[in-house]
Design a protein around this nucleic acid. Sequence first.
DNA 1: GTGTCCTGAAAAATCGATTGTTCACCAGGT
DNA 2: ACCTGGTGAACAATCGATTTTTCAGGACAC
Lengths: 344, 344
Amino acid sequence: MYPRGHPTLRDVANEAGVSPAIASRVLNEDPKVRVRDDTRERIRSVATALGYVPHSVARSLRGARSGAIGLVMHGLDSPINVDVLAGAQSRCTRAGYVTLLAEAEELAENDSQLRAFVARGRLDGVILHSGYGQEDRLVEAISSSVPAVLVNADDGRNVPTVRVDDAAAGVLATEHLLGLGHREIAFVAGPDGSQTSDRRESGYRAALRQVGLAGGADIVHAGWSPRSGAVAAEEILQRPHLPTALVVVNAVTASGVLSTLRDAWVRVPEEISVVTIHDAWFVEHLAVALTAVRLPLHQLGSTAATLLIDAIDGRSPETNTFITEPAPELVLRRSTDHPPSREG
Amino acid sequence: MYPRGHPTLRDVANEAGVSPAIASRVLNEDPKVRVRDDTRERIRSVATALGYVPHSVARSLRGARSGAIGLVMHGLDSPINVDVLAGAQSRCTRAGYVTLLAEAEELAENDSQLRAFVARGRLDGVILHSGYGQEDRLVEAISSSVPAVLVNADDGRNVPTVRVDDAAAGVLATEHLLGLGHREIAFVAGPDGSQTSDRRESGYRAALRQVGLAGGADIVHAGWSPRSGAVAAEEILQRPHLPTALVVVNAVTASGVLSTLRDAWVRVPEEISVVTIHDAWFVEHLAVALTAVRLPLHQLGSTAATLLIDAIDGRSPETNTFITEPAPELVLRRSTDHPPSREG
DNA sequence: GTGTCCTGAAAAATCGATTGTTCACCAGGT
DNA sequence: ACCTGGTGAACAATCGATTTTTCAGGACAC
């Protein structure tokens, strides 16, 4: 081994009896350079023999590229966004980038963490999982330092944005219930300010309007946690008149809703139908196997990564992209059926 | 703005009429240097005015530290390990490190990804989520390049290892069932080669031995997926004689087990009790709210990070650490009760 | 014999910050 | 006048790889 542990390019060059310059070009297969075959061979075999590994930091410093992409996610410990994360991570990795992971809340609260994350030279670009409201400063701070792509945000900033068709998903879920004969359908929404929830809600409203039920919108506010879903369900159960069906904004929220209904001995779907948006892995294992709208969330992540990489490579990406393929799709399970008054 | 976008230290120094050397020392608050107060002020205000941000890559090159820690996880899209990931990520971030995320399978399969990840200078250390078997090459490749801490692996390598007390969790789950009067208890195990599963199984066996049921061990092999749990449950249901209780190695596997039991109209816990190890968020929302052993997985991640940071700072960490605080704990829910023959 | 061209490779500058060494200047002592 | 000492800051080397520029030496033509 060498004094400081790893052999450097200079060590390889010395050992091969050439200059670092020519060693660099040979090892990087620079086509614009003419080298004798035996020299080329010698350099290569010395590099292998010494176990030479390029120093990524030195390379970045000179090359102005770090080969790293930042992933800023909400709620790392929540299962909601793992698909997006996995899709983005996988695409970045396959493209030869390494990925840096950060949590949006931490970054927004802690300036020194934010600075460390976007420190110059560290990142070639950032994928910012967004649409949670109240994140203008973060988006601004990040997108002014490095190329960025937003995931799930509404458009309206001058930063490229990618999202799935949440409104269509809301329509699909609601039309399914309408088709089964339901007319009293409540929407269990996410937290205030969530653009994702708002778009799904607007789909729900649109579907109601379509059948002339414009005034029938019935919104119950919850959040992204099982607990908030449970609270919303309790609220609904205290009404004198139950709706015959629920559209729940999200699968995690729905898990809380279903558990509360089970504990209150309200039968699903006999007494009340439930459909959710987001076909997560666990929905078929909940208290009742849950009918859900499948969204291409993995694609969402990977497409965001693709767009970002385009931007890094200098191709300016579209500013507003919908993932339409595969299209949102209803996955039928046990939790939806005709409303009680019309059963059979 | 400056030619290449961001002002450099030299720009700040020029603007303030000093040398880069003194600017660096002032901005880093080097105590060993004497500077007049007005000079100090001038440098600081120029830096602020110009919006100077240090170039992390240049700093790393000189300082031999990158300020980055690698997190290598199994199954990023699986919910099993998010707690560990979140714990490690959070601890690293708070300590001022950024975190690089990679998937163990990808790295093991793809040499160029592995090389990009452990390229010299990029990482100060790696937390390697382990214990899945068949990963010797990966552990070797990583731990020979940078300081590393293994999570969940058996010891026996010369790499520091952290884990929770899986055996104790297995004992706890099994003793709970024994205490309820069960004597025919099957263990639904993880995949072959999983050290985590093996340790939990050994706890199960130990608890049986403790009450003189050494020969009563009944192992059904499954895996980490809901599907594998479902298959295992189907296998059990085809027996002429059902066990009265199941210990399931993991909550995700258990979700498949429970769904299969529900679909086969086998009542839990009236006909069969089920307990799982790993009190994930969703276990209370499954087909039946599931009794589970809570493990300090978040702590596991954060302790691994702490040990790694110690190692990076030159303090050699213990080679074999158990997370004992908080201790494994049984969380009682609906899925366990007395066996049918003794009910009441 | 000298100038030109080409090949193959070395030299040196560069990326931006850090850090050990050196240095100019002034006050005070002899 | 001359040396000493301390202050405040500049100088220059360094980290490791990349890349532009330069150069040595042989072949060839005139």
